[in-house]
Computed example of a mutant assay.
Amino acid sequence: MASSEPPFDLKDFKVERVLSEDPLTHNAAILGSLRLAGGEDRPTIVRVEKAALPSFSPDILDSVKFLGTTDAYSWGLAWLKKSEEGADIKISVICPATEAHIRKVSHAHSNPSLRIQSEGGYKYSAQKIHLVHETPEIYARIVKPYIDAFPPSRTQWVEDILDGRSEVDSVLFRSSPDAPFGFLILPDMKWDGITMSALYLLAITLFKGIRTLRDLTREHIGMLKEIRQRAGQIVKERYGLESTEIRCYVHYQPSYYHFHVHIVNTNYVGLPSMSVGQAHLLDDIISLLELDPPGAPSILQRITLSYGLGDQHGLFVPLKAAQAELTKEDDGDGS
């Protein structure tokens, strides 16, 4: 179980440089160093993001400064009162940070408390996104060997959750041990656990043989439907939301290669990881698999997937080269 007391004092953080910042989503990743208790200064990444605003009332304001007014419109700045119920910013720390963390976010981390960093992938250093097309042939030749080469240590934090070594108290649902394709559901570290408009849960399969949506077949339809059903049940019973108020989706490329489903409030918009191409609605995935005839290769194994890929991603160089091959093939068709 994760400790609430880190082995450092964040006030001692020494800033080196800003790795990335986004004024739209109000978050930034800063590289620097921290001294661990009884040790030396270690490379550290601190990620700060604006916490979700509480329901507005004049009581939450400490002070207001108006900057201008014209006709019916006025604008200004405001400061919130200190509150134990809601923080102003959310902080995530990686210490010690490796070069892989600094240059890019690996597909998983060994520390379960750092789950937020791996969601959506490669968030720390700013990077340029390119649209790539992954045919079944490119998947088999480039992507699958890349996935197969990942050492188990990269998803150790997932194994710790699945085996009950961490975040036990956070689990909202766990399938019975004899379920052929079981899963568990727990809150994602992005969520503060309070703000319903920003609700964010995660369903993770207990079965280790499904790494991405490319591995899904007709035999997994029951599991996917149960994830959808259990998610709706949990948000209604625990959080008072209707099943129509949540959006369930799967990433491709995912940020780590152990199949999981994101469950967020339908009104929670603006997440970069919900962009077209990367996020695939769970309902759509189920519908596609239902079109497959029994015994046939999955449609998810037969289609070309197009998605945005950052130039710091480990797949970027070979997939970019493969795009040139696709262009030559299209030119050769004479179309």
Rank of each mutant, 00 (worst) to 15 (best):
M1V: 09
S4T: 12
E5C: 12
P6H: 03
F8S: 05
D12E: 15
K14N: 14
R17Y: 05
V18P: 02
L19G: 00
S20E: 03
E21R: 08
H26C: 14
A28Y: 00
L31A: 03
G38C: 03
G38L: 01
G38W: 01
E40A: 04
D41E: 11
R47N: 00
R47D: 00
R47T: 03
K50H: 08
P54R: 06
F56L: 09
I60C: 10
D62N: 10
V64E: 07
F66W: 14
L67P: 04
D71N: 15
D71R: 13
Y73G: 07
S74V: 14
S74F: 10
W75V: 07
L77T: 14
L80E: 14
L80P: 15
K81C: 08
S83F: 10
S83K: 11
E85P: 11
A87R: 15
D88T: 13
D88M: 13
K90F: 11
K90P: 02
E99C: 06
E99I: 13
H101L: 08
V105L: 12
H109T: 13
H109N: 12
P112V: 05
P112C: 03
L114A: 09
R115S: 09
I116L: 05
I116W: 09
Q117S: 05
S118G: 06
G120E: 02
G121Q: 06
Y122V: 11
L131S: 13
L131C: 14
P136H: 11
P136F: 14
Y139E: 13
I142H: 10
P145R: 08
P145Q: 12
D148V: 12
D148I: 14
P152K: 12
T155I: 15
T155S: 15
Q156H: 09
W157I: 01
R165D: 08
E167N: 00
F183E: 02
F183W: 00
I194K: 15
I194A: 12
S197H: 09
A198G: 07
L202G: 00
R214C: 03
D215E: 04
L216Y: 02
R218S: 12
E219A: 10
I221M: 03
G222E: 07
M223C: 11
K225W: 01
I227M: 05
R228N: 09
Q229G: 05
R230W: 05
A231I: 03
G232K: 09
E237Q: 15
E242T: 08
T244F: 01
Y249F: 15
S255I: 03
V261L: 07
Y268R: 06
G270Y: 11
M274F: 08
M274C: 14
Q278N: 10
Q278W: 06
S287Y: 13
L289P: 05
A296G: 00
S298I: 04
I299E: 02
L300S: 03
Q301V: 04
Q301S: 15
R302G: 11
I303F: 07
S306Q: 06
Y307L: 06
Y307C: 04
Y307W: 08
G310L: 05
Q312D: 08
H313G: 01
V317G: 03
A321T: 00
D333L: 15
G334M: 06
G334V: 02
